[in-house]
Design a protein around this nucleic acid. Sequence first.
DNA 1: TTCTATTTTCAGTAAATACTGAAAATAGGA
DNA 2: TCCTATTTTCAGTATTTACTGAAAATAGAA
Lengths: 184, 184
Amino acid sequence: MKTDPSETSGIPTAEQVRLDTARDAFVSQWGTIGSAWGINRTMAQIHALLLIRPEPLTTDQVMGELRISRGNAHTNLRELAGWGLVRGVIRKGERKEYFEAEKDVWKMFCIIIRERKRREIRPAINVLKDCIERADGLKSPEALAFTRQARALSEFMEMADGVLSKVVRSERNSIIPWALRFLK
Amino acid sequence: MKTDPSETSGIPTAEQVRLDTARDAFVSQWGTIGSAWGINRTMAQIHALLLIRPEPLTTDQVMGELRISRGNAHTNLRELAGWGLVRGVIRKGERKEYFEAEKDVWKMFCIIIRERKRREIRPAINVLKDCIERADGLKSPEALAFTRQARALSEFMEMADGVLSKVVRSERNSIIPWALRFLK
DNA sequence: TTCTATTTTCAGTAAATACTGAAAATAGGA
DNA sequence: TCCTATTTTCAGTATTTACTGAAAATAGAA
């Protein structure tokens, strides 16, 4: 990873090396963390890269920094934009698109929760309800055990979903102080 | 999926078919949900299967229900036991091991949160701190942007981690009523 | 309109992940 | 002790997922 502005003298300073090492570690590890949570490694790495860069980057810069193909960079940038974690910016006079990440950690958190709710939690709840309906009216002990368990899961998830909705709707300035107080 | 006790008459009743269909849907969908969250499909399916069965199952029964190999069943049962979501039970007089899932949804939730904290959140926080240290003392604007962002992430995650710890330590009987009140 | 920088797509391929099945190890019963 | 039901391991293979690179499409400039 190169310190991008005017890399003119061939030899980087010790400071640059140290920064690049730290950034590389961050990008690489963020990728690993992402994949533990079902997010593709490259997508997480691009996200990390944009998070720690003060300036927006082009597709080509992302390709260069992470040594990935155009197609890969493109697809994952679009995917990140789909989540709302990254947005495209067009600079006046320039034709190509730049990308920047949402830097505000609270906003980032809200986006991720909202999207996970929409993409994973709600569908899961619907599936549960559907399964419960399918077994509706059955009387065997096996059927009752099934329905009981499915209902418990569904109710719990509804509750969790509701709590998350409310947290995410609340203001950063009301939740964070609450959390800090809660921790004491 | 067969209604297990004494499947003697070859032809299943309409009720049995309906239950089996509902259970199959549940197992299959729980697998899909799991994989969206970074959990291997089979492991999630075995978990689902054990969740909705009132009686513990043997490795062979799991293999039969899900049509998977012994190695696969074995590995994923062990993995589930590693999470604490499933435990082995040995019936007196019998030599083989049976497996049953933790059925209580609140306990399940706590186990999952605790394990995710331990396996994913804490390591991620450590990585962040490590990256911040690596860039410590650097003064360039690029370095400051990096450090600032990494610190914000790390602080947020510490806070979230703390909140989760406290939630998970609390009693079901204090948190669930709280959540229901919170939702109103 | 043409020209070209840029974005988008996608068939083919590579890499990562999960699974099988059989052999080896283990542990209770006699 | 030996015998065998059961568990565990793991090399080989299959499946899924991610990536490449080049061709096609698009859209601003002239």
